[in-house]
């Protein structure tokens, strides 16, 4: 298990716990989407995985390291990097490559390894050609990919992203999601992704739905989104593909709630119609 929480509790103000005894285990290499309405405790949970917040009760382990052990702080933060919602507020330097270098510089990585890491990270997120640009001249999606590069230059085994696509346009959103998926697939980096867009959770191996500081649902995207009423009662929705299948089902047509992508949905519908025609 790369990430593990044991009865994790956290309160910003005493007596009003935001997280109420969470037990979550995340194996290495898993792609996990975390859903939940505003105030359900998603971001608070995420901030525990690189010791920005420390539990007020229970324990959090990153690769077996207790996050409350101050001596391991940098080790933990290197192991699990974090990307935030607003791309503008996490870029430190005025030149792209200098910003990507910021983390490894803090770790004291010497040249030429530092240079190699920066170049590699920029290439991984597809921003190498923008290495000498000023970040404020880039689009939101590009800035967010720079932020991701800044994390992977620290060589983490896990990356936690707090609504990284919320402020982006469709193209920026797609580029960022593709980058995340690629990191997971090719570099075997564990991914934790918070999002308000249900469609984005379809790329994940696993979906955790949070509600009032507890885990309400935990399963594969198909298992989770099949529970349409439950999701709606939690203030969430399901992807439109699932909604379509659900509507068909309620009209007595055959439906496949596992057909969560538009391609799969179209294939399935084509098949049932052809079967009917014979």
């Amino acid at each position: 298990m790369i990430l593990k929480t044991e009865n994790l509790e956290y309160s910003y103000t005493e007596g009003k716990p935001t997280l109420k005894g969470l037990n979550i285990e995340i194996p290495e290499g898993q792609y996990v989407a975390i859903l939940g309405h505003n105030g359900s405790g998603k971001s608070t949970l995420l901030k525990h995985f690189n010791a920005i917040l420390l539990p007020t009760g229970g324990k959090v382990y990153v690769s077996g390291m207790d996050t409350s052990n101050e001596e391991l702080l940098f080790e933990i933060r290197t192991r699990c990097g974090m990307v935030f919602q607003n791309p503008d507020n996490q870029i430190v330097a005025t030149i792209t490559e200098e910003d990507v270098a910021f983390g490894p510089e803090n770790l004291g990585v010497p040249n030429p390894e530092l240079r190699a890491r920066v170049d590699e990270a920029l290439k991984t997120v597809g921003m190498y050609e923008f290495r000498s640009h000023a970040p404020h001249m880039l689009s939101g999606g590009q800035k967010q990919r720079i932020a991701i590069a800044g994390i992977i230059a620290m060589r983490p085994s896990c990356i936690a992203l707090d609504e990284p696509t919320a402020m982006l346009d469709p193209i920026g959103r797609r580029d960022v999601l593709d980058t995340i998926a690629k990191l997971n697939r090719e570099e075997n980096i564990t991914v934790l992704l918070i999002t308000h867009h249900m469609e984005e959770a379809l790329f994940a191996d696993r979906v955790i739905v949070m509600d009032e500081g507890t885990v309400a649902l935990d399963g594969t995207p198909c298992e989770i989104f099949a529970q349409v009423e439950k999701m709606e009662s939690l203030g969430l929705t399901v992807p439109n593909t699932v909604k379509l299948m659900h509507t068909l089902q309620s009209r007595g047509l055959p439906a496949d709630l596992n057909a969560v992508t538009t391609d799969k949905a179209a294939d399935f519908i084509a098949r049932i119609l052809e079967d009917k025609i014979g």
Binding site: N50, G81, M82, D88, N89, V92, L107, G150, M154
Partner: peptide, 14 residues
């Protein structure tokens, strides 16, 4: 912004 930036810098081991 300052607060968010400070958190982000901390996350990157500054």
């Amino acid at each position: 912004r300052a607060e968010e930036l400070a958190t982000a810098m901390e996350c990157r081991c500054y």
